[in-house]
Write a protein that binds this DNA or RNA. Structure first.
Lengths: 351, 351
DNA sequence: GTGAAAGCGCTAACAA
DNA sequence: TTGTTAGCGCTTTCAC
């Protein structure tokens, strides 16, 4: 077990003071190029690794940001983190990743841990439980402490002080509704995952608004609320089927519900799109090869990661502190899970 | 912007020394319960957050481990990280996550960064590039420094000093071959992703061994090597089709190749499983709803994460230092992407 | 251009 | 049980 090398060791070895070594290694001015090079070589030879605890204790800088995800099993974060990683790596920043697991207590533990670890900023998608419980107080506290925070995907609607990158959730559902109406659908349902979650609540609002706007019939039974755990999606669909109360189309509100809806339909012998059209949420690679290929609402997930982390670095380094709210648009990716009822009708007329 | 609170502030406020505050807050003995409680309350009131840089500098403990993934976009890591997170969180450990992105240079940067940040151990899936380039020297250096390391998914076969958790990759392919042979398949191909990667090379070895073992015809053309980037899978399949040289079954060697194989077949109008049977790799949720549902080799991914992190914590806290190599078995999950040629034959005989 | 020394916030001997 | 103090490894004034 080799001993840990410090700048003191290097200083002795090179016959200079620790101050000089520090300056040489940290790239600060005040050392001759000649000497700097020598010191760098010695450091390399000795296998020196800087002690960031010491540096961050001294400078209060860590070149590190904290990223909190709400559920690490959600493939959403694969693209999101790729976006984040891309911008951070190129700027020399690293990140701590934590999984709040949709649990406010866990979120608090991790948030504190990150700040204790001296992160220079935080990227978070805050949890909100059914009863309205959230960590908003902790976010407020950190805001007051001057820790840059950018919220992504989810936000606290009433807290104007936080910057955020979200999509226009309401609009995404309204777009879906318009698309469906154009395809001749009038009886449309929506399946929601865990209630309380910001994005899900917004999507529900979009559904209600959209139905009014487009003069679509609105039935409470066609809304699948709080579909958690997994079997609830199957149960709800079965119930609609049993009561012969199936809408012609159902909108899923996340990628999990999309998959559950497809597999439930399969089990119940409901043909997609003949018996039921499905509008998926999130464009995952498998949407292409599911049967039928899934028409879906696509969020610019990679972009969310890219923009949120760029904004955060802006706050950190350029002291850009006014709260900015970026709202991106989702788009519809057309595949084969939605039937065109207009064509079906004209076909009947012809025969 | 509130001032940062230190134990000194608490000490003044409570009229005691910093040492007492330190003892009280860190749960160490030597303070009366009464006083400890008072100090905790004062700390809470002041909004104290410990400075882990200072603690780490002083104690060389960080309650943090480093996790390196080889490609964050791979859904493999969703389950893996869930396993890791489960064991770490319950033991009060947190993790730094880095994405080497199959790039040796990036891997080195992150590895160094983690050690500089005082991680108490590392969980890594090392990169090895086509030309054999790897970061093995760096791993060796950290090993000598006494930093606990557990390799997962991938390993350095010749380096006996490292503990690891992998699956029996060769065996997984041999199992697949046996399964296929039982279903009447003789002409079997295999599609490999990026060459050089440990798991992929092992799976190829398993294929070659298995073919010999089972007396299966072996054609170099049926091996799709180094299928990267994405269109290569399509190209290779098209080539086989054009030359009327399609095997009856192809084994995919990871989840990406599985998906690419399905979508390429679709584009080329190759019916699965009538024209071509496919054995997928990795059991992702969508395998169930792809058309046809994908028969696959399932790795115990969650278990890999659980075991690897448990082993690492064992090394860290119990000083358990002998290298341990855990090798888990994969299993076949049967669905509908493989045709039973025996039945087909008997059908012909009957008619 | 270089060195001496103070000090970041905390812990842990050692004293009392 | 509590306080005093040295020092973890580094950066950064302030001298020279």
């Amino acid at each position: 077990m080799t001993k840990k090398i410090t700048i003191k060791d290097i200083a002795e070895r090179a016959g200079v003071s620790v101050a000089t070594v520090s300056r040489a290694l940290s790239g600060k001015p005040g050392v001759s190029d000649q000497l700097r090079k020598e010191i760098q070589i010695k450091a390399e030879e000795l296998g020196y690794l800087k002690n960031s605890a010491a540096i961050s204790l001294k400078t209060s800088k860590s070149k590190t940001i904290g990223v909190i995800v709400s559920d690490i099993r959600n493939p959403f974060f694969l693209d999101f983190l790729t976006g984040v990683d891309n911008v951070l790596f190129s700027r020399g920043y690293k990140f701590l990743l934590s999984n709040s697991d949709e649990n406010v207590e866990k979120e608090k533990v991790y948030l504190n841990w990150m700040v204790e670890h001296g992160v220079e900023g935080i990227l978070a998608s805050p949890v909100s439980e059914k009863d309205g419980k959230s960590s908003v107080n902790l976010y407020r506290k950190f805001y007051k402490l001057g820790i840059p925070i950018v919220l992504y995907d989810r936000t606290f609607p009433k807290e104007t002080q936080f910057s955020s990158v979200t999509i226009d959730n309401k609009d995404s559902i309204i777009q879906a509704l318009i698309y469906l109406k154009n395809k001749g659908h009038e009886n449309i349902g929506i399946f929601l995952s865990k209630s309380g979650i910001y994005t899900i609540e917004e999507r529900l609002k979009g559904f209600i608004e959209g139905c009014k706007l487009l003069n679509l019939p609105f039935k409470e039974e066609w809304i699948g609320r709080d579909l958690y755990p997994e079997e609830m999606t199957y149960n709800k669909l079965k119930e609609l089927l049993d009561k012969k109360n199936l809408p012609t189309a159902i909108i899923a509100t996340n990628n999990k519900i999309t998959k559950l809806l497809v597999s439930a339909s399969r089990k119940l012998n409901i043909n997609i799109p003949k018996d039921l059209s499905i509008m998926g949420y999130d464009d995952l690679p498998e949407n292409e090869i599911i049967s039928p290929p899934i028409t879906c609402i696509k969020q610019p997930v990679f972009e969310i990661g890219r923009i949120a982390s760029t904004m955060l670095l802006g706050k950190i380094n350029d002291n850009f502190s006014e709260p900015t709210k970026v709202i991106l648009k989702a788009e519809i990716i057309e595949r084969k899970s939605i039937q065109d009822l207009n064509k079906k009708v004209s076909h009947f007329i012809k025969t």
